[in-house]
Design a protein around this nucleic acid. Structure first.
Lengths: 110, 110
DNA sequence: GTCATGAGTAACCAATGAGTTACATGGGCG
DNA sequence: CGCCCATGTAACTCATTGGTTACTCATGAC
């Protein structure tokens, strides 16, 4: 209730925090190609598996990915609702700014 | 075009990098209320003006804000096109992930 | 010109956090 | 049960960078 900064903002906070790192963005890009186990993700990146593991933990906390076990492997995949939070947050400013932008109609060279 | 990693990706990179910091997100939130001079922004935050100045420089490089002079003041305001880059980047994964998500239709607690 | 105001820059410090190696854990298989 | 494979965790290092203070630059008022 009334925590209007809350849910969306808190979620968005975690999401942008997570997406603020290039390696994590790279992981997200990889997972956009479909679910993959940690090892495969690490293989596609210039960092070690433990590093990827930690990044995945952060992405998971931000609810940008989910994991399921398949034998000894942990298969990670993108989790749409997480991205929705970021989108909504972004859209807020988009709307605000766009309105003012239109008002001023200043073609400052885009 | 043709450089597929390029424009959108590069822009999005700068944008998410910029938005990865809580103070910069706070600045963006403040500017969502309308254009403001540096001093006013700094007053609304628990950091000094120089710090805000540096953050604004980063936001400007990411093209999330623009500035204009008004006497001795520098008035900053949100710059919608910058947010568009982030949105597009995000939408890419959104689409990808959503498709796969729907496929599996696994309501894992969303 | 001189002074005052507002903002950017420089130099520096300290905390955060991304990365590494070494080790622990959990599940499948012989 | 004992061994191996795929991950996660711990402990630690090092680079990045957000923050500060001190100083400089630009504009406007007088």
């Amino acid at each position: 209730m009334t925590r209007r900064t809350s849910r969306a903002a808190r979620d968005a906070d975690a999401v942008f925090d997570a997406l603020g790192d290039p390696t994590r963005r790279a992981i997200v890009k990889i997972l956009a190609g479909g679910p993959r186990p940690v090892g495969v993700i690490a293989d596609a990146l210039p960092v070690t598996r433990p590093a990827v593991s930690k990044h995945l933990a952060i992405l998971r906390r931000a609810e940008l990915v989910t994991a399921r076990r398949d034998g000894t492997q942990h298969i990670f995949r993108l989790h749409p609702p997480g991205f929705a939070a970021a989108r909504r947050w972004l859209d807020g400013f988009w709307d605000e700014a766009l309105a003012r932008f239109a008002e001023l109609a200043e073609g400052d060279g885009g």
